[in-house]
Simulated assay, not measured.
Amino acid sequence: MLRVLTADRLAPPGEILRRLNDAMETLAPEVTATCALARVEEAGPGRWRLNYAVAGYPPPLLMTAGGSCRRTTPAAEASTRRRTQAEDG
């Protein structure tokens, strides 16, 4: 079902997970799951943006081309989901 929702339209990962949650509440309300969904998009020449959403996971770590690692910074929060954008140039 997640594949269908991601192929259906180019929506932010948080919106896709919301739609998946809505569908699962209707189809199988007794089932629970965790999910991490991300999309890497070109933000400009040589710059990339990670747009992601998590349900039941902590935010991901970002490893730069230089090998350093840091936590991603939340762009917006919802009660059960976190959507974050991080850029690395």
Rank of each mutant, 00 (worst) to 15 (best):
L10Q: 15
L62C: 04
D8Q: 14
R71V: 09
C35K: 00
A33T: 13
W48E: 04
G66F: 12
V4L: 13
L50M: 02
E25N: 01
G56P: 09
T73L: 06
L61C: 06
L62F: 01
R19D: 12
Y57N: 04
V31N: 12
L5A: 06
R18Y: 11
A7F: 06
A55R: 15
R47M: 14
T72S: 15
L5P: 05
D22G: 05
R39V: 13
A28H: 06
A23C: 02
D22W: 01
L2R: 02
A55N: 08
Q85Y: 11
I16T: 00
G46M: 00
P74H: 13
V4S: 13
A78R: 06
S79H: 08
A55D: 06
A23S: 03
V4I: 11
L17Q: 08
V40T: 15
A75P: 04
R82I: 01
R47G: 14
A76R: 11
A75V: 05
P59F: 03
A43E: 15
E42W: 01
E42G: 03
N21E: 00
L62Q: 03
A33F: 15
A33N: 08
S68K: 10
V4T: 15
G67D: 12
P58I: 00
G46N: 00
L5Q: 08
A7H: 09
R19F: 00
A76N: 06
A23M: 02
A33E: 10
L2F: 01
T84A: 07
A38T: 08
G89L: 03
N21G: 00
M63T: 09
L10I: 14
R82A: 04
Y57R: 06
V4C: 12
V4W: 10
V31R: 13
M63K: 14
G14N: 02
T73R: 12
A38Q: 09
G67Y: 06
G46H: 09
D88I: 13
P59Q: 01
A86W: 11
R49E: 09
P12Q: 13
N51C: 14
T73C: 08
L17C: 09
P59H: 01
L2S: 03
I16F: 02
P29D: 05
D22H: 04
R82G: 00
A23F: 09
D8N: 15
L17H: 08
S79R: 02
P12N: 12
R9N: 14
A11W: 12
R47N: 14
R39I: 10
E30G: 05
P12A: 15
L27E: 03
E15C: 02
L50P: 01
A86Y: 07
L17V: 12
G44L: 00
